[in-house]
Design a protein around this nucleic acid. Structure first.
Lengths: 334, 334
DNA sequence: ATGAAAGCGCTAACAT
DNA sequence: ATGTTAGCGCTTTCAT
């Protein structure tokens, strides 16, 4: 206990226990391969000296870091945070650490982070979305490590994808609003890949139902309640008789509800409002929010399971596309 | 470009550029110390080969990992996620990576994670809260690396603390409720350190205002809207004439508002409700929620700044206690 | 079941 | 401004 913690090396433990360094190494990473008596002696020495193995040295020698890196646009959106929470839980249970990077919706930042992560020789990388610059896709493929993409689907994932169809979700919402009698639809969302796909589906379904084209109001990510409120006001200025709005996330939708309240508009009487992601508050808002439920936490857990399986058994699983689906949760607002 | 990315080593670049390995190393970590011509040649070689330096080897040799580890109870609470978001932003701008661990409010998990992080030789560790087992405190002090604690204050931080007084926040809320005419107070929160401190302050201020003791309803973390709703119902069963409730977080408070709505109780007429942390939804709820604003993101940013400063310049800053304060945001609900 | 030798890929310290 | 030498602390591989 005399040396500072991180100056105790494996050789110190070996000397203390009267064995060779490898034996200490084995006690730590494959205890069953060591005789019980030897093991006990080594474990005692480890405890006595307070030895904490230097995992960087281990990583260097073994080429396995036991780190999984994940890239999200931002943590301050509950939906990604939930996915990361699920992922971290699964990984940690399997002895892996999560390293996190925030891209702030910026592809350059994404590329920088990927380099940093490859530099650390992370064992796998988790990406948000399925649209990435070609160069990045190539680099990731070449890296040879498992790459998970999430929160969307793709015909041609870099490696494998766990998500749901944003386009189909948009269609579902449009059909629902139409079935509720809406004729003049609006859309509020950021100019960002997954949002664009939701809009694309929304717009397509609206068209095929014979409606006029959807009015779109773009906001800047990360989009919050205030953005939603302001966006609705802007939308109403352009198209005063709008009667249904799809918001690309629940937070925006809460802002829209607030704006409607301010205007004295009844929801869904005067205007129907739908959100996306089914945050817990969606059920508690007034009126309760109709929204698309996606399984944020399960997404993370599933990715974790798939990664751990692959990292442990090395098999390149056949299935590359994992569609976790979504569901429309119809409440009061639409 | 023929070898897989991570099998290009620094010596390959050195050979390609016709220099020694150190020179390549310098081009990467101290470009100004290399002649422009040499630098250009090396940079070209790096690009040509797609070299991505192995940071584990670097860490091993230099004993600096450029990783900061942070421990939070969970990411699926917006307040901690915001702190992490702020921290990650500041760190990343300074060339540091954030490694994240979730304790799920479990001290054993916390200890395990600290070991894992020390094993990686992270450059600093950020902890949530200021109550940690003695053994852990000692181990962290011994580690010699900067340790930040946050989301609370302490007279005797392990190293330094950036937060606010949970006790004072509780007092402030109690005094406010009393000034609004509440006489029979309730408290809803999890059995967890920071929450207990809020309760402690709340209870003390209620007593010194001459009120009966506070009715407490405990919930399990991570506490959500439903927990809040159920907790209010339980509280009302015990003390039907309760007229003011302080919830240890805004999410619980939203549940309480929901329960009041269900019961047909006017807020704040029949019962006043206050929350904690000032989530964006607090301003948008009906009625708008009176709550304690804490500067979650700033907390993270400040920690990042302090850490970077120390890691760069090595000075053990004099100030160990950084009180970022809080403020009572009075809206409609209380 | 245990050990000896040989790296893993980089940076520090000291030349020149 | 650039190079040489000697590790950093562990795991691998191959013996025994």
């Amino acid at each position: 206990m005399s040396k500072p913690l991180h100056r105790v090396r494996m050789s110190d433990v070996a000397r203390e226990a009267g064995v060779a360094r490898v034996t200490v190494s084995r006690v730590i990473s494959a205890p069953d391969s060591v005789a019980p008596k030897t093991r006990a002696a080594v474990e005692a020495a480890i405890a006595r000296l307070g030895f904490i193995p230097n995992l960087n040295a281990g990583t260097l020698a073994s080429r396995r870091s036991h780190i999984v890196a994940a890239l999200v646009p931002t943590l301050s959106n509950a939906w990604f945070a939930d996915t990361m929470d699920g992922l971290a839980g699964t990984l940690s249970a399997a002895g892996y650490q999560l390293m996190l990077g925030q891209t702030r919706y910026d592809p350059e930042e994404e590329e920088k982070l990927v380099n940093a992560f490859i530099g650390r020789r992370v064992d796998a990388i988790v990406l948000t979305g399925t649209s990435h610059p070609d160069g990045l896709r190539r680099k990731l493929r070449q890296s040879g490590i498992p790459i998970a993409e999430c929160w969307d689907l793709s015909d041609d994932p870099i490696d494998f994808v766990v998500g749901f169809s944003n386009t189909a979700a948009g269609e579902t919402v449009a059909r629902h609003l139409v079935s509720r009698g809406c004729r003049r639809l609006g859309f509020i969302g950021a100019d960002e890949d997954r949002t664009r796909k939701r809009l694309q589906g929304f717009r397509a379904a609206a068209r095929s139902a014979g409606l006029d084209d959807v009015r779109v109001q773009t906001v800047h990510p990360p989009s919050g309640i205030d953005d939603g409120r302001l966006a609705l006001e802007a939308l109403v200025r352009i198209q005063p008789d709008i009667d249904g709005v799809f918001c690309s996330n629940d937070t925006l939708a809460l802002g829209v509800l607030q704006a409607c309240r301010n205007n004295g508009w009844s929801v869904p009487g005067r205007i129907a409002v739908a959100g996306f992601s089914d945050l817990p508050v969606a059920a508690a808002s007034v009126p309760a929010l109709t929204t698309v439920r996606v399984y944020s936490r399960s997404l993370g857990e599933r990715i974790g399971d798939l990664l751990v399986q692959r990292l442990r058994h090395g098999q390149a699983d056949a299935q590359r596309i994992h569609d976790m689906g979504f569901s429309l949760v119809v409440r009061e607002s639409a």
